[in-house]
Simulated assay, not measured.
Amino acid sequence: MVLSKRERIIFAVTLVCVGLLIISEFVVDPVLARLDEMETQRQQLQDELEEAQFLLANHGAMQRKWRALVSDGLRSDAEAESKVLTALREWSGNAGLALSSIKPDRIASDKGLQEMIFTVAGKGTLESVSRFLWQIETAALPVKVRDIQLGSGSESEGTMSLQLHLSALYLGTPERSSDAKQPEVDYGYDI
Rank of each mutant, 00 (worst) to 15 (best):
Q63Y: 09
H59L: 09
K65N: 14
T14D: 05
Q41W: 03
R42L: 10
D29S: 11
Q43A: 14
Q63A: 14
Q44H: 06
V18S: 04
M62D: 08
M38Q: 13
Q46C: 04
R75P: 00
G60D: 06
F54W: 10
E25L: 09
A57D: 14
E50H: 02
L45P: 03
D36V: 05
Q63N: 13
G60A: 10
V27D: 05
A68F: 05
V13R: 08
V70I: 10
L32A: 12
T40H: 09
M62F: 03
E51G: 02
W66I: 10
C17Y: 08
L69K: 11
E37T: 07
L56Y: 04
V13M: 14
L55E: 03
V16L: 15
R67L: 11
I22Y: 14
D77I: 09
L21E: 12
T14K: 14
L15V: 08
E51D: 14
D77V: 07
V28W: 07
D72L: 10
M62R: 14
V18L: 04
N58D: 15
A57G: 01
R75E: 09
L45R: 02
I22K: 14
A33R: 13
Q63P: 02
S76N: 08
F26R: 08
V70K: 14
V31P: 01
L32Y: 04
Q44E: 15
D47F: 02
L15R: 07
G60K: 10
N58M: 03
A52C: 07
T14F: 11
S24T: 11
R64N: 14
E48W: 03
T14W: 12
E51I: 07
R34A: 15
L55N: 04
A61L: 09
Q41T: 02
L32T: 05
L20K: 06
L20I: 08
R64A: 14
L45K: 00
W66S: 07
Q53E: 10
E39P: 01
F26G: 12
D47M: 10
R42D: 11
F54H: 11
